[in-house]
Design a protein around this nucleic acid. Structure first.
Lengths: 168, 168
DNA sequence: TTGTATGCAAATAATTTGCACCAAA
DNA sequence: TTTGGTGCAAATTATTTGCATACAA
């Protein structure tokens, strides 16, 4: 499973995502290709949540330099997760990815009106999850919590401000 | 309602799921058909988690009495959720349903080895979620927590005891 | 009768995979 | 040279939807 998961605070990292990924590739005898180089640079230039489709849309079109086929995008995203650079989770049926490497463990509040994701950290939650695990004899290594509600903006305006495409 | 091998007990409810569903249908001017009657009886005869495919597989085959088409199964599952009889969540990419009506709020431990789902209740968690919501100006109405780990059986045996099909 | 429900098959949506060709190491 | 990587298109998987017909109220 994913190594280096830390439930308390952030992890000090010596390597950039690029370097970490190279290390991962080498350790498995995989190759550092132009496409992987391009994707790792693009993906780790921002911290926002995204899904495969959004990433594909943001790439250069077929024929232009930097083009990467959808199949390769899907394959590479899996490698990023394997390498511990990204984590993924399901939201409204889609697979959403987010920057993980070197960032503190956190969870999300989800506004079901405007589909905004807000991150939060909770020490109490980490403790709770370990306690619950222990009570049931589980060796716990991860958890996923999403709190659903309506954010203050939406409570105020009473209507959708953004569409699915605009964020996540 | 039939009290199965549920570990969390149940909440007192005035109506059976069947009655509750009828009420729901009437309140919306929907019809109580043979298929709905059949499905509500089948689904609420057990408390286990299931997905649409498992339910479809457990139905009589085409031509036999009790047959319900997949399309209708999907449509009916949505109605059960709408009616507050079932809740659904995503697990390993599939939509999993579970008995909700008259059943206490709870969350899950998930064994990634044998794919077993274990329920647990935590008062502290409910409190925590409301606090977090308040801190961020969210009007919270729901949450979903899954704690991933390896159950004691699997820790001991070090290998898979069950396959995906066998449970969930 | 009147509008809702159902079955069937086609349509979607999000990925995944087979395969021939390309390219790191 | 060898073996993994990529693009493309077809295949999957899980649902959803259009439509003609059947049925509950």
């Amino acid at each position: 499973m994913s190594s280096g998961q830390d439930s308390l605070g952030s992890v000090a990292v010596a390597l950039t995502p690029q370097e970490r990924f190279e290390e991962y590739l080498q350790s498995r005898g995989l190759r550092h290709t132009e496409q992987r180089r391009f994707l790792v640079k693009l993906v780790f230039s921002r911290h926002e949540h995204f899904d495969a489709d959004m990433l594909i849309d943001s790439l250069p079109r077929k024929g232009q330099t930097g083009y990467v086929s959808p199949a390769t995008v899907y394959r590479t995203l899996k490698e990023f997760v394997d390498a511990g650079l990204l984590i993924s989770f399901q939201l409204d049926g889609r697979t959403v990815y987010e920057y993980d490497y070197g960032y503190p463990q956190h969870d999300h509040l989800y506004c079901t009106r405007c589909r905004k994701l807000v991150e939060f950290q909770s020490e109490a939650l980490s403790k709770l999850r370990d306690e619950v695990g222990a009570e049931h004899g589980f060796r716990v290594f991860d958890h996923r919590l999403i709190i659903n509600g309506v954010c203050s903006d939406c409570s105020r305006s009473r209507r959708r401000k953004k569409r699915k495409q605009d964020l996540v």
